[in-house]
Design a protein around this nucleic acid. Structure first.
Length: 433
RNA sequence: GGGGGGGUUCCCGAGCGGUCAAAGGGAACAGACUGUAAAUCUGUCGGCGGACGCCUUCGGAGGUUCGAAUCCUCCCCCCCCCA
């Protein structure tokens, strides 16, 4: 499904059409530049966890689109800046991460980025599907760690060479800082902006990078970088930001009962990932199709015309496309089949989330359903499990469980499995063996 | 360094010696209605036990008291004002 052909719209036009465009330091000049030459652009990712979550999908896809349009993406894994902690968009002091933790995180994130952007480094990750874009020699991506140029900075030199170009007055006026003046902002965080600006300066100097993209909360940091490049390199460079997304319900993207929606299949299974997108609010479908899939505009516009219950069709397309981007077409297919089996009663149940259960444990008649629900992590506590049963929210092989202390027995096994259902949406099978 | 105000259950936020597992709101979960949507209504929402029961929670450590989230002591952290 990946779209490897050169798109019809210009990069900026497509970004606008897809809803990636929030603001730009100079749209006209940037448009001219993009039309004239292969532009190198970068986006930074902070290794605050060992996996990216779908909040990072937008900037990642920003790089993907860039590369699709023949330009050259740079992804920075912020090994140094993560040590400092970006105050932007944060309401309180972020927990400082240890250097070891960051190293671990870096490895995970680099591999994930390579799934999307073609860095021309096949050995980088064990991909079961390649990067979604294929680049030519002119626009292979570059993956860098800003620790390489930040870690060994000499404080005094840095202050004299770089720090003197920053006006505290201006820094205080930045939204990211202003928002924190009430609740507090430590000096280390206050410096983040400078480090990010310095990144841009280095990339501009050493890689000819002329554009930085990021979430709109990065606007202040990006502008600082643009200024620094002008001052130190006498270069006109640009900044482009993406909107900060909330769902139609006003929720931050990617939050579910189970927590964040991660890109790593270990953290969020492809099935759960698919479910997240199928369950999206009607009002979000159109936006999400444009933002999170590489589907052709014509295709998307057709899906947007669907109304009422037919919107589900668009949601399935959305879920399939995003899951395929992140986990590959096979996993997307499996997730779709499992969903079809569970929700429309047709198809293949073999891909429903499941766990093993030893047959011997059913023999005694003292294996309580509520204990099993906790064991397979469908419930957090027995109290919660019992509550669910009491409320009629638990089904065993399709039947509502009436007894709070229902025991599982061999008689519950049907075709080698016991089917559990919590509420309307959560399904789990026990494979008895 | 001085003065003032704070740290409460996932979040916000009441409580200020017993009736507090702790008001209220939000989030979340279940049920009804639906389209695996939204809105609405109902219920639930620390843990364990069938249950009127027990256990663990109100920044941390001690103490006073029959009894503390509530009082005292010390410590840690945050905010504001002054220097």
């Amino acid at each position: 499904m990946s779209d490897r052909s050169r798109p019809a719209l210009s990069f900026l036009a497509e970004m606008q059409w897809r809803g990636f465009y929030q603001q730009c330091t100079d749209p006209e000049a940037l448009g001219d530049l993009l039309a004239r030459e292969t532009v190198t652009a970068y986006t930074g990712f902070d290794p605050t966890a060992d996996s990216l979550h779908i909040g990072s999908l937008l900037p990642i896809l920003g790089l993907v689109h860039l590369q699709r349009h023949g330009h050259r993406p740079i992804a920075i894994a912020g090994g140094a800046t993560a040590l400092v902690g970006d105050p932007s968009g944060k309401t309180e002091l972020r927990q400082l991460l240890s250097a070891e933790q960051i190293e671990t995180n870096l490895a995970g994130i680099r591999a994930q980025l390579a799934r999307f952007v073609d860095f021309g480094e096949p050995g980088l990750a064990d991909l079961d599907h390649g990067p979604v874009v294929a680049a030519g020699p002119g626009n292979r991506g570059i993956l860098l760690n800003n620790a390489d140029w930040l870690r060994n900075q000499n404080y005094i030199e840095f202050l004299r060479d770089i720090g003197r170009h920053f006006s505290v007055n201006q820094m205080l006026a930045r939204d990211s800082v202003k928002a924190r003046l009430e609740v507090g902002l430590s000096f280390i965080e206050f410096n983040y902006m400078i480090l990010q600006a310095y990144d841009f300066y280095i990339l501009n100097r050493d890689h000819g990078c002329k554009l930085q993209m990021g979430g709109n909360d990065q606007w202040g940091n990006i502008c600082s970088g643009v200024d620094l490049c002008r001052r130190l390199n006498q270069q006109e460079v640009f900044g482009l930001t993406f909107p900060l997304l909330a769902t139609a319900a006003g929720e931050k993207m990617g939050k579910t009962a189970a927590g964040a929606v991660w890109i790593s299949p270990q953290r969020t299974s492809p099935y759960e990932f698919y479910q997240y997108w199928v369950n999206v609010d009607d009002r979000d479908v159109s936006r999400f199709l444009r933002l999170y899939t590489l589907l052709e505009p014509a295709k998307i516009e057709a899906l947007e015309k669907l109304e009422g219950a037919d919107v589900r069709q668009a949601k399935r397309e959305l879920a399939g496309a995003v899951t395929s981007l992140v986990h590959g077409p096979q996993e997307a297919e499996k997730a779709a089949k499992a969903a079809a089996a569970l929700f429309t009663g047709s198809g293949d149940e073999s891909t429903v989330p499941s766990s093993e259960l030893a047959a011997a444990r059913l023999a005694g008649g003292d294996l309580l359903l509520v204990d099993v629900l906790v064991e397979v992590a469908l419930c957090q506590s027995k109290g919660e499990a019992r509550r669910l049963v009491r409320q009629g929210g638990v089904k065993l092989n399709g039947e509502i469980v009436a007894e709070e202390l229902r025991a599982l027995t061999a008689a519950d096994v049907q075709a080698g499995r016991i089917r559990l259902q919590l509420g309307k949406k959560r399904h789990h099978h026990l494979l008895v063996g």
